[in-house]
Design a protein around this nucleic acid. Sequence first.
DNA 1: CCGTATCCGCGCCGATACTG
DNA 2: CAGTATCGGCGCGGATACGG
Lengths: 144, 144
Amino acid sequence: MTDDDDSGSHALSLRMQRGDLFAEKCPSREVLKHVTSRWGVLVLVALLDGMHRFSDLRRKVNGVSEKMLAQTLQALEADGFLTRKAYPVMPPHVEYQLTPLGREVAEKVAILTDWIEGNLMAILTEQQQYQARQAVQSEAQAVD
Amino acid sequence: MTDDDDSGSHALSLRMQRGDLFAEKCPSREVLKHVTSRWGVLVLVALLDGMHRFSDLRRKVNGVSEKMLAQTLQALEADGFLTRKAYPVMPPHVEYQLTPLGREVAEKVAILTDWIEGNLMAILTEQQQYQARQAVQSEAQAVD
DNA sequence: CCGTATCCGCGCCGATACTG
DNA sequence: CAGTATCGGCGCGGATACGG
């Protein structure tokens, strides 16, 4: 309960047309989930430099299992972010590639990941300082 | 096993200086996890328009529980993305605000969320078409 | 008002085995 | 090579109760 702002149903449906992340039931939450999922992020960024086969992705995205990779790829394909082309040869050969729509999201995601990679040291430093402050707090509590 | 590319340890440590998402044990994976977490995304974007109190965020970020909000805020504070100022009055009063570092990530995240919100309709259309193709496939299989 | 502590279900995800 | 199927642990996250 306490959810569901049905006030102004016209305004609501208009907002639904462009999506409102802050509204609980908005489908954009689902899309965001796929895009920002642990492996979704890495797959999208990996595919930014062109077509990849399944095993290429598996090797590039360190630590992903077959199951999770397949699952992630399906979700992104269902959202229209990538295409899957299977060649019925032996041994099997499947190619994954970003769609124009997918390339756009992937670029936005890459902006974020690039920033994090580039500022990692600054962030780690902040983490250290936070830990230090916490230690002081604990010490102060031990005195009282 | 089979992880751990320790080949070229100098190159590795250099890469660690700027972070490499594709390397399994890189700390940037943790940071990314906080930033792209279900509630982390929404909190960062919400804080983009200035200071918020705890209950402000709770109301703005529809659907988040107290526990998850507190947990999310702690993680983002530990990463140095936001500051927490508690005024020891009755009733309690706590203010959350982005740091300069936090503002930068938040802006990158907002680029992504804005794009998704703006292109939601196109994505939903793609999803429909995917479902339709799947239905055809199932039908074709029923024939053989 | 702003949390922390505890319990607990459910879904993520890894491991393994099997198909085409 | 590129998956699907199944099982099982465990951690995320919701609900509730309680403290400052």
